[in-house]
Design a binder for these strands. Structure first.
Lengths: 272, 272
DNA sequence: TATACACCCTCAGGTGAGGTGAGAGTCAAG
DNA sequence: CTTGACTCTCACCTCACCTGAGGGTGTATA
């Protein structure tokens, strides 16, 4: 019979933890004095406690450990739990190593520019949505506004006429690679709230969910290339690769004042 | 002015999280209606939120992020925080990879024996303690009991006579390498609660804190070699190396019934 | 026998980064 | 005026413990 303090010293496990394991039914004292409530342990409990600690060291939760210590658990189940745990640790491992990569890349940027970078790249999922779209070929890059403006007007007119509504900001999709500046294959898109029929060059379809790397650009359209470049650099430095079209989301657009503009730019990416 | 739900959709951050960031003073809505309590955000807040998300992705806590977003923070401090974070991620990375190693080693063991291994190895710190010790050379391995028994008797007699008390179970330290079975250099040790003077072959000193790999053996002394072997195997399979003496801690010893015995065996180790 | 001191108990509350659910108020469209 | 979508606050949950308050227990010493 060993008092909790001595057992704690013996095993190098804190008294609080031992009481917690008691409460969780993981390791019950062999005897609890019904008058004083004192817990008494025995050396025979050392192997069980050590198994608990060893499994905790493998990253299992206390609930899982309780399961694994239950009698009558088949070896097969044990093996399955270990295999599962192995894959989870592998996942965490790769997450941490990507994190490390991101930190190092940001440190390099700070070394070079001697300030916090202007753009923060975020990985997120562009949700699936129903859209009205209008796809076209634009001869030269500087004609993009002349082509996109009317296309969006046409789309908004069309969906209003068909009693649908836009659910979020409109955007453009570049299907051409990002280093092509002639005869670009561009799609003007407005997300809408209900299925309507197609007409002429206006198509209605469900855009699937897509993982994207994104940055937000504020201010003049002309500085756009900076954000664009920062995003491409980040994608490259952090081990992603571009797997789909480039999006420009017109979150806030002010005809009067082009400097008062907010645009999100995104590339569909995957881990390389 | 954007309502919280739209802002959440736009940024792919949950409403609950946005409210939490408001409460934490990380990202305050630009306006809160004083009557309804409705929060209103603006597109100008997107870059700040994206910076928060990017830093969170680097593994920083919200408190740290708040610091990093405060104006007037020098680039030097930023760099320092990133460097610190880098080393912490590196630590976590190596912890996870050791964890993975341990899981794999246990899986291999299960494959081989088709059951959960009998011994669980635990890494812990043997605490620093004041001890009375008696070191000797034992000619052959089978004479160990004949030498250790009287030595412990002598030690317990001595400390009782000098008004000290033992604070935890006695143990033996093997200073010879574990593959030597002749003229072994062994030290019998009893931890005591106060400084007393030395006499003859009895030495009093402070044993320093030591990292050890340990297993508990229950039952017959003869099966001892199994635990011993399991421990050595584990140390090898998990990337540790032995850096100090081998300990045998006599947690429970029963002269009448040698099968009713609990012993902890430990090797001083370090990560290889 | 009084007291000092080391132990032990339970219970409440905290950690981080949100998630869940209840109950109630707000807003726009039909 | 009702419906349905949206928003608010508040309280409680997660996990593996840790901290502290307030009080009881056990043993050695003055």
């Amino acid at each position: 019979m060993i008092k909790i303090g001595d057992f704690a010293r013996l095993t190098q496990v804190s008294i609080v933890t031992l009481r917690y394991y008691d409460e969780m039914d993981l390791l019950k004292p062999v005897r609890v004095d019904s008058f004083t409530g004192y817990r008494f342990y025995s050396v025979e409990q050392l192997p069980r406690l050590n198994r608990i600690l060893a499994l905790k060291d493998l990253g299992f939760s206390l609930d899982q450990i309780k399961l694994m210590l239950a009698d009558g658990l088949a070896v097969e189940q044990l093996r399955a739990m270990l295999t599962l745990q192995k894959s989870e640790v592998e996942k965490r491992l790769s997450e941490e190593s990507e994190r490390l990569q991101r930190i190092e890349s940001r440190l390099r940027q700070i070394e070079m520019e001697n300030k916090m970078p202007n753009y923060d790249v975020v990985i997120k999922n562009a949700p699936a949505m129903l859209v009205a779209s209008c796809r076209m070929t634009i001869p030269t890059n500087d004609q993009v506004p002349q082509y996109l403006g009317p296309a969006f007007d046409e789309l908004y007119d069309y969906i209003r006429k068909h009693n649908a509504k836009d659910t979020s900001p409109c955007f453009a999709l570049w299907h051409s690679p990002s280093d092509v500046y002639e005869n670009e294959d561009v799609e003007a898109i407005v997300p809408i709230d209900r299925q309507i029929k197609e007409a002429g060059r206006i198509k209605i379809y469900e855009l699937p969910i897509t993982q994207v790397a994104s940055v937000v650009h504020q201010g003049n359209f002309e500085d756009f290339t900076q954000g664009h470049a920062a995003l491409l650099e980040w994608i490259d430095a952090n081990g992603y690769k571009i797997v789909g079209p480039y999006r420009e989301i017109y979150i806030k657009f002010n005809h009067q004042n082009l400097a008062d503009t907010t645009t999100e730019i995104q590339f569909a990416v995957e881990k390389a």
